[in-house]
Nucleic acid binder design. Structure first.
Lengths: 265, 265
DNA sequence: CGCGCTTGTTCAATCCACTGAACAACCACC
DNA sequence: GGTGGTTGTTCAGTGGATTGAACAAGCGCG
């Protein structure tokens, strides 16, 4: 595999962590998650993270004992406990439960593919997916991440941030990730869209991440200071996408967003 | 909340871990996952895990920095990164992808609620769920755990283990968890069922975890030494459950299990 | 208000986890 | 087989993480 010359030191900069072992352990899990094959050996990890082999070995032993990772012969991969913990996190979000209920009984949305996502650094992360009919079978799964600039939810959540935060994340000379010919290229384009989204209250993604597929998204108003902002999106095939249908979907999305934003029984 | 008098020391026994900080950090996440509300304060954690407050504080800081947990005012809860990591784990299991594909095009299963699960200590953990029609809407989610003795998949996976392992997990005087009047009560009953399951090649759960609901399950043959064993199950309403339908479902489940067990393109 | 009980944060001394070098095994390639 | 490159494990010394006591801040109560 060539050789990934990226000894990205696990230490962030002011390399002092209140509990270095924990920070390094987290870096190990990150590395495993990002590894294409999902499997790395002790030496791989030691090299990539810049941690001495002996220390890495200790970390791996401890992580394995906690079932956060698994050893399979010589190489390590993520452990099942992570699925449990991730599920535990999701089960605490009442929004997810209500999301499903609403989708099922919504006139238009009940037949569509709807998702709820959350902003997470400079990406969004999908929390749940409702699939009304399998016409559009998405390749994305719960827990998957997407760049902000490439998805309708990403853009709508970006629009909720303060301008100076946006500026910090997207200076004028950034290179945006590109997935299709229609993906946004420049920070200027992105900021123009953000302005438009703020006016109209929803975001549109027009084949920017997948050709033939469009997406609509609205933000969920954050009730109180309770965590980061959520967003909702519908996905449809561009071929079967009409203005009137879009209007209906946006309307229902906004209803759902409103009911998620105002906690109730 | 009464007061949970369970200062379950984080240290397992031979309290020596090759990287104590990591072990303790894992214990912190466990505690957060198990806490009914999902939120605990520094003092809660310090008390429950028997870790000095100052050390706990450091752990929490490091965990927060890694986004493995989140601080919300005074109390802590699990972090979003866990969803990512859990998803990363699942995305590596090709079985899950093929599971979905197969369910969609299977004559009988395509209309049912099918799940794939994995053995995880003395529990099973659900990895994916296919929902053909929303007749039976399950309350369980991906990542949820269930005792072995209470589910069809649990029993079928138990039947795959060696007798002495079963004996170790279920000595004759264990108290089994009970969820309905029809739940198995004694280890003897369980072992009798295991014997039967080995003969017939599938397991049946008859209202043992939820009244009105039945389950069928088959094991997935482990190809190679590749990880722990998987199991498949169909869930149906007892009211609409017939012998002939059961036979069809078991047949298709076995086909799916076979194709999962023999990796292919 | 003052008291008792929490809570979380600070800090210097100690102990233990981390380190690096030396080790044994292994594989690939002449 | 010899050789240079791995791999992962072992172990004693040391530097830094961990600790507990002392701290400040908050809360309920009489």
């Amino acid at each position: 595999m060539a050789d990934s010359r990226t000894p990205r030191s696990a230490e962030g900069l002011g390399s002092s962590s209140p509990a270095p072992a924990v920070t390094r352990a987290a870096a190990v899990m990150d590395a495993l998650a990002e590894a294409p094959s999902g499997r790395l050996t002790l030496s791989d990890l030691s090299r990539e993270l810049g941690i001495p082999k002996s220390s890495t070995s200790n970390l791996l032993l401890a992580l394995e004992e906690a079932r956060l990772i698994t050893r399979e012969g010589a190489d390590f991969s993520l452990g099942r406990k992570l699925v449990e913990l991730g599920a535990a996190y999701l089960s605490r979000l009442d929004e997810v439960q209500e999301f499903y209920k609403f989708c099922e009984q919504a006139p238009t949305l009940s037949g569509e593919t709807v998702r709820i996502a959350m902003i997470d650094g400079d990406h969004i992360i999908y929390l749940a997916r409702y699939e009304g009919h399998p016409a559009v079978r998405l390749t994305s799964n719960i827990g998957d991440k997407m760049p902000l600039s490439l998805s309708a939810v990403g853009k709508v959540l970006l629009a909720q941030l303060h301008d100076h935060d946006i500026e910090a994340m997207f200076p004028d000379d950034v290179e945006l990730p590109v997935m299709t010919p229609k993906s946004l290229r420049s920070a200027a384009e992105l900021k123009a869209q953000v302005a438009a989204i703020r006016k109209q209250g929803y975001a549109l993604e027009d084949e920017e991440s997948t050709l033939g597929v469009v997406c609509l998204a609205v933000p969920v108003p954050t009730h109180g200071a309770h965590g980061p902002s959520l967003g909702l999106s519908v996905t449809a095939l561009k071929a079967t996408f009409s203005e009137e249908q879009a209007a209906l979907m946006v309307k229902e999305l906004k209803e759902l967003a409103h009911s998620l934003g105002n906690p109730m029984g």
